[in-house]
């Protein structure tokens, strides 16, 4: 009996059920805290026509950037998509649809999706191209636009430690979008650096409670640094 044991034994099993045309929500900010092995598994499977929801789209040859190589992404919601030559080429050739979304709105769309809130009002984007065509309401003399929540067929998440039950902790700023992404997947898959026994993680220090998590796998990570800045 598996009970609450969310562990799977291979990346193939971790991404079982992903199909072309699905929506995938991914955690990560730049290359920090990205589910790099789950992304690699999506590439290996060759599924296409994906809608990807992620703050960024990786770099050439790493992170979500690898899914551009075989044109697996047809649409992306992101707040910033620089740093990626192949992405720029596909965007300019209209091979990929880009829905630029303010970073806080993107985080809130995921959070709302996971929390059963279908839409929310925000001042962000009012009076800008982002607000065009969206419902506007005035509260306390300020204008707000209506933004809709997002739910993914899959959410792919990178954690630091988890227990077998799928309770997850993140490390430093590798947290970023991961906790929201974890709540917003119909199937949420988390890859972590270490899986421990239930009881080993302090309950009050859990970032993502296991109720949100469907599958968990331990992996090894390259953790590539995008901008290496050091002081002497």
């Amino acid at each position: 009996m598996a009970g609450f044991d969310k562990r799977v034994s291979s990346y193939e099993e971790a991404m079982e059920g992903i199909e072309s045309g699905m929506t995938v929500i991914a955690g990560g900010f730049g290359l920090c805290g990205i589910p790099e092995n789950l992304i690699a598994e999506i590439k290996r499977r060759g599924v296409s026509d994906l809608t990807v929801v992620s703050n960024n789209c990786g770099v050439d040859g790493f992170g979500l950037g690898v899914l551009l190589e075989d044109r697996q992404i047809s649409k992306i919601l992101a707040s910033y998509v620089g740093e990626n030559a192949l992405f720029e080429k596909q965007m300019l050739n209209d091979e990929i649809e880009v829905v630029l979304t303010p970073q806080g709105t993107l985080a809130e769309k995921m959070r709302a999706g996971g929390a059963g809130i279908p839409a929310f009002y925000t001042a962000t984007g009012y009076g800008t191209p982002i607000g065009e065509g969206k419902e506007v309401r005035v509260f306390n003399d300020r204008h707000y636009i209506l933004e809709e929540a997002i739910i993914g067929d899959f959410a792919i998440v990178k954690g630091w430690k988890a227990d077998r039950y799928g309770n997850v902790m993140y490390r430093h700023t590798a947290q970023n979008f991961n906790p929201m992404a974890a709540t917003a997947g119909k199937i949420t898959v988390v890859e972590v650096e270490e899986i421990v026994e239930p009881g080993e993680l302090e309950p009050s220090q859990i970032h993502t409670p296991g109720i949100y998590v469907d599958r968990i796998i331990q992996g090894t990570f390259e953790k590539r640094i995008e901008k290496r800045t050091v002081r002497s």
Binding site: Y80, E88, P102, T105
Partner: peptide, 10 residues
């Protein structure tokens, strides 16, 4: 080329 607004609008 438009790279995005990041967090600026928020």
């Amino acid at each position: 080329l438009i790279k995005g607004m990041g967090g600026a609008m928020d």
